[in-house]
Simulated assay, not measured.
Amino acid sequence: MNTRPQIPQIEREEDVLLLEEEAELRNLVVYNDEVNTFDHVIKTLIDVCGHQPEQAEQCTLLIHYKGKCAVKIGSYEELEPLCTAIHDRGISAEVI
């Protein structure tokens, strides 16, 4: 007879709640303006957000025609430095 020992099931509600808070995803939204060129916004999305050229171009078109676009999803801690880098290039953005 082959019996394996029972592994106790431990539930830690505190740990689960902490993980849920850490995993809260936000959007990095870039807004349209009348100042920046398509090329500048595309280059910024490639350099700052790691977009492929096609993805950056599509986001830039959405920004232009819809007024804004969520260009990246992640935690606040991940997105805030990217938002600052986008601001440093003269482009309006926020983490929401």
Rank of each mutant, 00 (worst) to 15 (best):
E22Q: 14
V16C: 08
E78M: 08
V16R: 15
L18W: 03
H87W: 08
N36G: 02
L62I: 06
L28Q: 03
I96N: 13
I7Y: 07
E21F: 10
D47M: 09
D33T: 08
E57P: 04
V30E: 02
L61M: 11
E14K: 13
D15I: 10
Y76S: 15
F38Y: 13
G67P: 04
V41P: 01
Y65F: 12
V48S: 01
L18T: 12
Q9F: 14
D39H: 12
K72G: 01
D15E: 08
E24H: 09
Q6G: 09
E24V: 14
V48R: 00
T3E: 10
N32F: 04
I96F: 12
K72S: 06
I42H: 00
G67W: 03
Q6M: 15
L28A: 06
L19T: 11
V16Y: 14
A56K: 02
H51N: 05
C49N: 05
P5A: 12
Q52N: 12
E80T: 11
A23W: 00
I63Y: 01
R89M: 09
A85G: 02
K68I: 01
I46Y: 00
L17V: 06
I42E: 04
A70P: 05
G67T: 03
V29D: 01
L25I: 10
Q55R: 13
H40L: 10
I91K: 09
L45M: 05
T84H: 10
R26Y: 11
V29I: 14
E78F: 02
Q52M: 14
C59Q: 04
H51A: 02
I42M: 05
E14W: 14
Y31F: 15
D88L: 06
V16F: 14
I86G: 00
L82N: 03
V71K: 00
L19D: 11
E34F: 15
T3S: 15
A93I: 05
Q9L: 15
K43L: 08
L79S: 05
C49V: 02
E20Y: 10
P5H: 13
E13T: 14
K68A: 06
E80I: 15
E80Y: 12
Q6C: 10
H40K: 10
P5E: 10
Q6R: 14
E57M: 07
L82D: 03
I46N: 01
A85R: 07
I46C: 01
L45T: 00
I42P: 01
T3W: 11
A93V: 03
A70I: 09
G67F: 06
H87M: 06
L82R: 02
C49Y: 02
I86S: 03
N36M: 01
